[in-house]
């Protein structure tokens, strides 16, 4: 019957379009979808798919021991050794890689510090001192305005 055949053709066409769209979008790569949709919503690189992070991920990671930094940043190294931020410099600055040929990350935003100093589900509050009132602690100023990131306490 004619109408059934036509309906079938319409249905199959819809299916084909759907499949073409799926493979088309897939073929264009993540730089197009979801990256463009993300951009429209102002989302950046959650789940590690922003272009910049992708590039970093592709690079081989090369970390050094903590002592490596002391060779050239003697002062900071000694200072940090006396405070509570005496853990590996690379925790905050990223893996050494080809440094000093390559510049390292220096992030002095509030969010960066709060990443460790805000209460987090699943981590007990004794491990790292938690700012319960983080919204108002040093409100509207970067943490480094008062705390030295390499020697955070005041002595």
């Amino acid at each position: 019957m004619k109408h059934v055949r036509r309906a079938l053709v319409v249905f199959i066409n819809i299916l084909i379009i759907l499949i073409v769209v799926i493979f088309g979008i897939k073929g264009l790569g993540e730089e197009v979808y979801p990256a463009i949709a993300d951009k429209l919503f102002g989302v950046e690189g959650i789940y590690g798919t922003s272009g910049e992070q992708k590039e970093i991920i592709k690079k081989p990671v090369h970390a050094e021991g903590r002592e490596y930094c002391s060779k050239c940043h003697e002062e900071i190294y000694r200072k940090s050794d006396q405070g509570k931020h005496n853990f590996d410099c690379q925790t905050c600055h990223g893996a050494a890689s080809d440094h000093p040929k390559m510049r390292l990350k220096v992030d002095s935003s509030r969010e960066f510090c709060l990443g460790c100093h805000k209460a987090t589900i699943g981590r007990d509050n004794e491990t790292i001192r938690v700012l319960h009132n983080w919204e108002n602690h040093g409100k509207d100023r970067v943490c480094t305005a008062c705390h030295d990131p390499h020697h955070p306490w005041f002595d």
């Binding site: 799926i22 979008i25 897939k26 979808y33 979801p34 949709a37 993300d38 429209l40 919503f41 989302v43 959650i46």
Partner: peptide, 12 residues
């Protein structure tokens, strides 16, 4: 969804 704009990814 936390990222509704990515909903179509389920088909990709």
């Amino acid at each position: 969804l936390g990222q509704p704009q990515r909903a179509f990814e389920i088909y990709l």
